[in-house]
């Protein structure tokens, strides 16, 4: 008797949850990366309750989604991971390229290689990777990887490297004149030697290293555009350089999972964030650029015309999308990176 009562209660409880789930949206995104105002506006506009969960790396997010039944509707992975999501059939083909607000997409992001025709993804924010430098410590040219890979005396022992293997390997390969995903052994020997030599001048290899730039503990760091912008608002001597040897630009993108419990709400969300005033809310919060035409006029004042968010015309050809290399190449790069970190 008791058992039946319990199971009845359980079933009732379950159905209640299911009933509530209409009008829900579950977002799986990087931490500190979602504007609360944006979520608030979305909730009010469509009367949808939004739940957010954080991840700390693309690999964590992918592993979780792969397991299936994650309960998430939308995920915001980096572009280099999008092909994997697509190939593994994890995504719902929502065709955001055909949505109403798709007309707002900036030309560069309209038909990217990682998602031709925008069949699955909508850009969340975009970024470049370069170097942040405290110009009161070093007054020379900062538009080069030399700042962190062959640093001047002023910066030695004050450099931080963000421990993203792909970014640092990209920097070193470009600095030595190679192409990304190269397996040229002669070049990779130079890359390794360069990194080993440069490491002697590095203070730390740490995600939180860039946070120490404002206080002066760190004077130069591998950095991303939005992060550099935040540093500059804290300490005006900090400037962001785009290396002329080649830099990466990339974006994080909103995709909808195949097993999304609230598919329609997720589509609404994809369309919603392509509206300029909505994309600008996100940009203002995270300090990264929106890939949406007309978003800039809704930016906060400190972001309008910020150099970190603008790629000068003469540099445009130097940027490339960061892709994932073949596993064998990744293994090779891992080995080199481990030699550096050991």
């Amino acid at each position: 008797m008791k058992l039946t009562a319990t199971s009845a209660a359980l079933i009732l409880g379950l159905s209640t949850t299911v009933a509530l789930a209409e009008g829900n949206l579950n977002i799986y995104n990087w931490g500190e990366y979602t504007s609360p105002e944006l979520i608030d506006k979305f909730s009010k506009t469509y009367n949808i309750h939004v739940t957010q969960t954080d991840f700390d790396s693309n690999d964590t997010a992918l592993a979780k989604v792969r397991q299936g039944s994650s309960g998430f509707d939308v995920v915001v992975p980096s572009q280099s991971f999008i092909p994997t999501y697509i190939q593994e059939g994890l995504l719902a083909e929502t065709n955001p390229g055909q949505m109403e607000n798709a007309k707002n997409l900036e030309e560069r992001w309209r038909d990217p290689a990682f998602d031709p025709g925008r069949k699955y993804s909508v850009p969340w924010l975009w970024y470049t990777s370069g170097v942040s430098v405290n110009t009161s410590v070093f007054k020379g040219d900062i538009n080069t990887w030399k700042v962190i890979l062959d640093p001047p005396a002023e910066l030695k022992g004050k450099i931080n490297i963000v421990p993203e293997m792909n970014d640092i390997m990209f920097a070193a390969i470009k600095f030595e004149g190679g192409t990304w995903c190269t397996s040229d052994k002669a070049l990779l020997t130079k890359v390794r030697d360069r990194l080993l030599e440069a490491k002697k001048s590095w203070l730390s290899i740490d995600y939180s290293g860039t946070l120490k730039m404002a206080s002066g503990d760190v004077s130069a760091s591998l950095d991303w555009s939005g992060s550099a912008l935040k540093r500059r608002t804290q300490n005006h001597s900090i400037a962001y350089g785009l290396p002329k040897e080649g830099f990466t630009y990339g974006s994080d993108n909103v995709v909808v999972l195949k097993d999304a419990p609230n598919l329609e709400n997720a589509k609404l969300f994809q369309n919603f964030i392509m509206a300029p005033e909505n994309a600008a809310l996100n940009s203002t919060f995270a300090k990264y650029g929106a890939a949406i035409i007309g978003a800039e006029k809704y930016y906060s004042d400190d972001m309008k015309g910020a150099p970190e968010l603008t790629i000068p015309d003469d540099m445009k050809s130097k940027g490339e999308l960061l892709t994932l290399c073949d596993p064998k190449i990744t293994q090779l790069y891992s080995r080199i990176w481990q030699d550096v970190q050991k």
Binding site: S57, K199, I205, D206, P327, T330, S334, K342
Partner: peptide, 25 residues
Amino acid sequence: PILLGGGRNLMIGNYIEFQFGQGRD
């Protein structure tokens, strides 16, 4: 080792973590 060692000198725990994360191995 990451927070206090600055990530410059890894210990075996970080090395293993790396293989499951960025190392993809």
